[in-house]
Design a protein around this nucleic acid. Structure first.
Ligand SMILES: [Mn+2]
Ligand SMILES: [Mn+2]
Ligand SMILES: [Zn+2]
Ligand SMILES: [Zn+2]
Lengths: 142, 142
DNA sequence: AGAGCGAATTAGAACTATTCCAAATCCACG
DNA sequence: CGTGGATTTGGAATAGTTCTAATTCGCTCT
C-alpha cells in the first residue's frame, strides 16, 4: 500500500534517485495531490497550490508534476484528448470514467486479473505497463 | 468478425441509421482506413485521402472521421496526449504501444478476458466499454 | 559570511491538434 | 429545374502544453 504521508526525507530521496533536487514548489504540489485523492488536471492543481503558495507559476506546476511523474510518486491519466490528469494512487488500479458526470474512480486491480490480461499477449510482446479504462455510468459513488 | 469489404449499401445504411448521408468524402475516408489496417492520425488519413481526392480539406477529414466513429464503423485510440488515431478493427481488441518505435499493434481479446476484467468492478459500476492499453516493446512484429 | 555555479522557477511566446465559423456547394425531393 | 437542409471548405480561434531566455535559488567551497 502506498504511504498516505510520505516523510519529507523519503520524498527528497525519491527525487534524488533520479538526479533531481527537492524544492518547496515540488513539496507543495505533491502535498495537494496527497491531500485530496482525486485526479486533478494541471490547472486544478495550480488553483489548489496557489492557496498555499500564491507566487507559483503554472509553468512550475507543469514542471513539478513532470518531476513527480518521473520519480514515480504520481501517475498520469488521460481520457480521450482531455487535459492530462494526475493520480496519486500508486496501487495497481484501473480507472472508471463516468461519462455522464465526468467523474473518475479508482478501481482496485487484483494481481490475478493483471496476470490474466498480460497472458493474452502473444510471444514477442513485453508489456512494461497495462492501463485499463472503463467508461460508463456509476451510481452513487463517493 | 468485421467485414473487410463493406458494401456501399451497407455503408450508407450505417450512416443513415444515425441520420447521416453518404458522401464521396465519407466513402473515400472509410476506404483508406479499410485498405491499410493500421492506426493513422487524422493528418495521415488526410495525406492518403488526398491521393484519391486531391480537393478534400482537412476539416472534412475530421468531419468524416467523426461521422464514421459515431456510426461505429471506426474506433478512436489515444495514446497519452498524442494525436488521435483511428482504428478500423471492430473486433474486441486491446492496443499494444511500442514505446521505442511508436508502433501500435492490435491484440485480440477473448471474451473470457473481458468478462474477467469486467468482474473487478464493484456493484454500482456499469461499464459500457473497456479499453486496455499495453506499453512496452515488441520484437519483430508485422 | 561571500562568491560561484548549476538547477529550478518564472512569464510569456510558441506550438499543435482540434474545433468553430461563415460562406460556398451539393443533392434529394417536389 | 428550383429550394432547403446537409455537407464541405478555408481560415480563424481555441486549449493544453511546451519552449525560451532571463531571473532567482540554494548548495559547496573558500
Ligand atoms: Mn468525459
Ligand atoms: Mn509513443
Ligand atoms: Zn487513479
Ligand atoms: Zn486497433
Amino acid at each position: 500500500m502506498a504511504a498516505i504521508t510520505e516523510t519529507p526525507e523519503a520524498f527528497a530521496q525519491k527525487l534524488a534517485d533520479i538526479g533531481l533536487r527537492n524544492t518547496p514548489q515540488r513539496e507543495v504540489v505533491y502535498g495537494v495531490l496527497m491531500k485530496k485523492q482525486d485526479h486533478p488536471t494541471a490547472d486544478e492543481v495550480y488553483v489548489r497550490v496557489k492557496q498555499e503558495m500564491p507566487t507559483i507559476s503554472l509553468a512550475t506546476v507543469y514542471n513539478c508534476l513532470e518531476a513527480l511523474v518521473q520519480c514515480k510518486l504520481v501517475r498520469v491519466v488521460n481520457f480521450e484528448r482531455g487535459p492530462t490528469r494526475y493520480c496519486p494512487n500508486l496501487n495497481p488500479h484501473a480507472h472508471f470514467h463516468d461519462e455522464a458526470t465526468g467523474a473518475t474512480y479508482d478501481i482496485d486491480l487484483p494481481d490475478g486479473v493483471l496476470n490474466q490480461v498480460n497472458a493474452v499477449l502473444p510471444k514477442g510482446y513485453d508489456a512494461k505497463s497495462i492501463e485499463i479504462i472503463f467508461r460508463g455510468s456509476a451510481a452513487n459513488k463517493r
